[in-house]
Design a protein around this nucleic acid. Structure first.
Lengths: 256, 256
DNA sequence: ACCTCCGAAATGTTCGAACATTTTCCATAT
DNA sequence: ATATGGAAAATGTTCGAACATTTCGGAGGT
């Protein structure tokens, strides 16, 4: 009986339940890993993605790699040219501004709908996500990927919780897309935000008041805070982005 | 000299110019063909996409097929489950309503921006697209794919021309996504629209006044017409969709 | 009659090699 | 020196076979 029970348990743990979607194929794993590295900026914009090189780096064959890259092409994180391979999608100031304008539009719309339709569980999730975000340490350096990853994950989750009750899967999807793309720009400058006491204090305050206004159903105020929060992020990122590209375009005037 | 010139011309026509992106790989061709068939409803919602079967039908190997399907997964036209293959994404009434609500929101927003920023070329394109749409014959039957394809193509192009000047690539992209998905629902009932004199006359009138209001820069009126045009399409499709699924769910009450 | 187990068939996944295209680079001619 | 042509290398693409997983169906037991 003991052996039978053990056997049953074993087969159960190996079996796949109907709603299971962990899907442990190499193609899907490669997709997740590439996506993470793309958004985190580990693979620099414009860089060519040579297949044999990627294959060695990620330890998977070319077939699952191409599958993963194909999905990323549709997500606009990767570009493809027939017979000339894949490259990391470039960043640009125009794209950044377009991204942010729409993020404000869609985000505020989603937030208003969420406020109109959310229940107590939705409110609870927001407060929980806010708490986790506030407890996440700010990264001290560009190299500290673990801390950056954790902060970004909790930040994403907080913003996702705000609009989770809007009952529009497509709207949530589009907000996610924009959020992921914006993260590529933000990752480059997160250390700046973290380095400035003034700035990080302001951002924390914005998150707090945003959660407060949302949970207390003040739609206009919440939407306003969200819009200004996004505008503020754009400001920081754009300022820094300009500085970076300027230094790349022109030779350094003083210390060259 | 004659031979040299001929040779030069030949090599030129075979060579690829820098900005060329026709990309004649099997993977990209399969992607385009599958996408067309998915949107046109040739591959019914929910149907399993067996690889060897598709491979035979489309005359390409499994590798390029998986590439194509992976892209379609990201576009939400196909679903994938690890180790259990691909299926055509299902349709649902909830999805249809979500789709249309957002189509109205984003479409009107894009139209307003387009009206604010468009130039004379943009106006000309709208009038040209409207003309082509009005000259497209309406399909007489469900089987008449050539006519349906042509009408849908011109209809898409007309709506695209309206928002082309909004200067927001992301907004245009999202509108395209929604438009493609909505087309899956509309295709099923286009014959109904075409069959009703009353309905097709009304739709034509809507397109005409929409173009007129847009070109004469009456933003409020144009946005209003567009919203009601989308609502009207939703109505026709939803009514028909309900009828179809009802007849599938319940046995026919009279002639069973 | 129902359930469980197990093997066979079907199907999805991955690899390595073969093939095609693009890119690089060097020899040659102007 | 610069431009041209074309081999050689690098890279992208595709195929067919091998491998893994899932699904189907029947044998055996309760």
């Amino acid at each position: 009986m003991c052996r039978d029970a053990l056997g049953a348990e074993l087969s159960l743990s190996l079996q796949r339940v109907p709603g299971d979607d962990d899907a442990p194929t190499l193609g899907l794993e490669a997709y997740a890993r590439l996506r993470r590295d793309l958004i985190a900026g580990q693979l620099p914009p414009g860089q060519r993605l040579r297949l044999r090189q990627l294959s060695a780096a990620y330890g998977v064959g070319i077939a699952p790699l191409r599958e993963a890259l194909s999905r990323l092409v549709s997500e606009q994180l990767v570009r493809v040219e027939g017979n000339r391979g894949y490259t990391v999608a470039p960043l640009s100031l125009e794209d950044l501004h377009d991204l942010c304008r729409l993020r404000i539009d869609l985000g505020c719309s989603a937030l208003r709908q969420s406020i109109a339709r959310g229940d107590a569980d939705w409110e609870a999730e927001i407060l929980a996500a806010l708490h986790r975000l506030e407890r996440a340490p700010l990264p001290a350096s560009h190299e500290d990927r673990v801390t950056i990853d954790q902060w970004e994950q909790r930040h994403d989750r907080f913003h996702a919780s705000l609009i989770a009750a809007c009952r529009s899967p497509w709207l949530i999807h589009f907000c996610d897309v924009l959020s992921d793309h914006f993260q590529r720009y933000r990752r480059a400058v997160i250390v700046v935000t973290a380095g400035s006491q003034e700035l990080s204090r302001r951002v924390r305050e914005e998150h707090r008041t945003l959660a407060e206004a949302t949970v207390s159903r003040e739609a206009d105020r919440a939407a306003n805070i969200l819009a200004r929060h996004f505008e503020g992020s754009l400001d920081v990122v754009a300022r820094n982005y300009e500085a970076v590209t300027r230094s790349l375009r022109a030779p350094a005037p003083a210390d060259g």
